[in-house]
Design a protein around this nucleic acid. Structure first.
Lengths: 169, 169
DNA sequence: TATTGTTATACTCTATAACTATA
DNA sequence: TATAGTTATAGAGTATAACAATA
């Protein structure tokens, strides 16, 4: 067998392997998407039914709960990765229900600080507890060691595709 | 050490363990959600920029591509897990762009068969190829064996939480 | 000029419900 | 009556862009 032939065969094998891997990646992605969507939809539905709240509103409250001193609108916008107008609308709704409050900033009169009210804090505590229970329930098909494994694998993915072969800009 | 004490200590340990596990589950869920959302948003954005198509439209075409003989509106509705009116609207748009076609059913005049047109098939082929490349790229931080592992773990999750301890109805 | 936040608008996706035609 | 599909409507979530107030 010549080196030439070896190279040809190897390249054919690599091509086959690449195709198989591509299909495996696609199957993995579809499974990742459907598993996540199923859980997310369940949580969304239960939040609506049991607490009359939507996921973005819950998420905004969760951001505020982690920052007792409050956050500016622009910081909320950045953390929730949505544009400013949307944050205004969510905060408007939550403020109407007296779950959050806007407070003037002495230092910069353009800017507000948004924080949970006392009612908001206790409402969020109840929701967060239920939410955690649902998550535990929905992930329960995996035992603790499997969950740990999954957590690690997803951590590798989280970083944002560092082996990106596309143009950077 | 009495049996009584053993029981107490064990139950305290179990409680601690349960709390730790709950927080681990929550962290896992947040990581699962953010990883999936990041990939989904990237794909959604590229589909829009490069092909002027939305994810639901792409998904509908993907369903049809797998069934060359076509699908009824109600079957599409079932598979895409959205209500009928939405399928009508998506099919309307795709039909206007001549990517899919409605064909009368001889057997039941209430029902249509929707299938890809020739243009739809070739347009979808181009999109699907790009899509697969993006998925491969976005999952590339994980090597093949890790992807396989992830696929298995998600398979356990996929079934729909069989250890569901909540009321069934 | 740049930044913070609001307002106005538009679009997609979704669900519900009333409707038409056919079975 | 029940089913297949359409239409109308409403609401959530999102983005863009114009705007006012302040820096």
């Amino acid at each position: 067998m010549s080196a030439r032939q070896d190279t040809d065969m190897a390249s054919v094998d690599m091509e086959k392997r690449a195709h198989a891997d591509h299909h495996a990646s696609l199957r993995l992605w579809l499974r990742l998407l459907s598993a996540t969507t199923r859980i997310e939809d369940t949580i969304r539905q239960r939040l609506r039914e049991q607490f009359g709240i939507t996921l973005p509103r819950f998420d905004l409250m969760a951001q505020l709960e982690r920052e007792p001193q409050g956050l500016s609108m622009s910081e909320l916008s950045r953390r929730m990765m949505v544009t400013g107008g949307n944050v205004t609308s969510i905060v408007d709704q939550l403020e109407k229900e007296q779950l959050v409050q806007r407070q003037m900033q002495a230092s910069d009169r353009r800017s507000y600080t948004v924080s949970l009210t006392e009612a908001g804090r206790s409402a969020f505590a109840a929701m967060a507890q239920a939410h955690e229970g649902w998550v535990v329930e929905l992930l329960s098909p995996l035992v603790a060691s499997q969950q740990e494994q999954l957590h690690k694998l997803l951590g590798t993915l989280k970083s944002g595709s560092p082996t990106n072969s596309e143009e950077t800009k």
